[in-house]
Design a protein around this nucleic acid. Structure first.
Lengths: 113, 113
DNA sequence: CTACTCTACAACCGGGTACTTGTGCTAATG
DNA sequence: CATTAGCACAAGTACCCGGTTGTAGAGTAG
C-alpha cells in the first residue's frame, strides 16, 4: 500500500491539503532545517547556531514543520530534539532538485545557442 | 542521467530554487490547473469555464506556471493553448498525496484510539 | 474598417506570512 | 529558593501574494 496513484480529478479538499504541504516546503529556511536534519536529530539551539538564525525564528519554523507532520518533537531535559518524521520529503526534494537542474540546464542551453 | 541524488548539504542558491518551485505548487488554483491539464492541453477560456475562475486570474496563474517551466504556451489563432511541459509534477503530486493521506490516516487513528 | 473574441499586462486592495522584539514557562544547577 | 539555560508563544512591522478591476493588444468575422 505504498502509494496508490493520485485520483483524478483531484477532489477539492485534497487539493487544498496538497497545496498546503507544498506551501510548507516553499520556504528556504524550512528547506535548510530539513536538509540539516538529514544528518540526524538536532535541538533548536544546534539548528540555530548551524543556520545562523534567531532562536524564535528557528522554533517557529520547526513548529510549522511539526504541525505538518514532517518532523517529530521530543523533549530531552531542557532541550527539545527535532527529527525527520516523514522521510518522503527527501524524495520530493530530490525530484525537485532534478527538475530545477534540468530547467536551469535548458535555460543555459538556450543562452549558449 | 535521470536524477542524481540531491547534493548534501544543499548549496544556498539551489535551496532558493527548490523553495521557489515548491512555492509555485503551493496554490490550490495552480494545482487545479495542472490537474486539469493532465487530461491534455487546454486554452485559457476552457480552463476558465472548467474551474469557474476569472480569465485574468487563470491567465495570471498560467503565466506563473509557464515562468516556472511547468507548462508550455502555444498561440493558436486568437487562443493560447497551455500544456504540461514537465510531467514530473505529477509524480510530485502523487507522492504528496500519499504523504497527506498517510498523515490524515494517522490523525484519524489517533482520534479513534 | 469596425466590431467582437481571446488573452495578457498593470494598478489596486485585502489577507497572509516571515522576521523581529519582548515575554513567560519549564527544567537543571547551585 | 534563586539563577540560568532552553524553548515557545504573542504582538508588531514590513513585505509578499492572490484576487479583482480596468485596459490594451492580437486575431477573426462581417
Amino acid at each position: 500500500m505504498a502509494t496508490p496513484p493520485a485520483p483524478h480529478p483531484l477532489p477539492e479538499p485534497l487539493i487544498d491539503l496538497v497545496a498546503q504541504r507544498f506551501r510548507v516546503l516553499g520556504e528556504p529556511m524550512r528547506i535548510r532545517l530539513l536538509d540539516h536534519l538529514r544528518d540526524g536529530e538536532a535541538t533548536v539551539g544546534e539548528l540555530q547556531t548551524a543556520l545562523h538564525a534567531s532562536q524564535q525564528n528557528v522554533s517557529k519554523h520547526l513548529g510549522i514543520l511539526h504541525g505538518a507532520g514532517l518532523v517529530s518533537r521530543t523533549k530531552r531535559g531542557t532541550s527539545v530534539v527535532y527529527a525527520i518524521d516523514d522521510p518522503t520529503v527527501f524524495e520530493l526534494c530530490d525530484q525537485v532538485c532534478g527538475g530545477v537542474r534540468q530547467r536551469v540546464a535548458d535555460l543555459d542551453a538556450l543562452l549558449q545557442a
